[in-house]
């Protein structure tokens, strides 16, 4: 086992443990902080996969913006008792666990039994440049649609959160 394998195992353990914490903590503030740790672990995995730009975007967008948004929303809609704020349904806990277990085992078995084609080449040296060439070249329509989607989502979020029909 060399160093990069060890780093992968440690990062994967941190990520999965934090993800278990997200669904396991009874207090939703603890869940949100655990979610931040999980996002950072995923960002570290991106760096290991030589996707440095994606890792930085993950830290900026997920660990930064999305987490802050979620924590603000939690503070605005906090229940009276914070220690009971992230409970599971009594019955759905078992059904959900069963379905999640079946999904995981099924997908895992499918992954294990598939023979994946291995590529011999390596990623482009300037992966950010290659990404930009694709984004503003072949995929420019999708790029513009994504920009429009973000604009519409921001306007929609403001209108929903402000409350439509309040003209003061």
């Amino acid at each position: 086992m060399n160093l990069s394998d060890l780093v992968f195992i440690v990062t994967a353990l941190i990520t999965v443990t934090a993800a278990v914490g997200v669904v396991g903590f009874k207090n939703i503030v603890h869940s949100a902080l655990s979610l931040v740790l999980s996002f950072l672990g995923v960002a570290a995995l991106y760096f290991q996969l030589q996707a440095g730009f994606l890792g930085l975007v993950q830290i900026l967008v997920y660990a930064g913006a999305v987490s802050v948004l979620i924590i603000f929303a939690i503070m605005l809609v906090m229940d009276k008792d914070p220690d009971e704020s992230n409970r599971s349904h009594a019955k759905q806990k078992y059904w959900g666990g069963l379905i999640a277990l079946l999904v995981t085992l099924g997908l895992g078995a499918a992954i294990g039994s598939t023979i994946w084609p291995q590529s011999s080449g390596s990623l482009p040296e300037d992966s950010v440049g290659a990404l930009a060439t694709l984004l503003l070249g072949d995929y420019v329509v999708a790029f513009e649609v994504a920009a429009l989607l973000l604009l519409v989502a921001v306007v929609g979020a403001i209108i929903l959160a402000k409350g439509a029909g309040e003209h003061d």
Partner: peptide, 24 residues
């Protein structure tokens, strides 16, 4: 990596199906 992704996805499925809090 794919197995790690599967485990994370399964944890997410469990949370979606069992949580009572919409933010959760």
């Amino acid at each position: 990596y794919l197995l790690l992704g599967t485990v994370l996805f399964g944890i997410g499925v469990y949370g979606v199906l069992s949580k009572r809090n919409a933010v959760g």
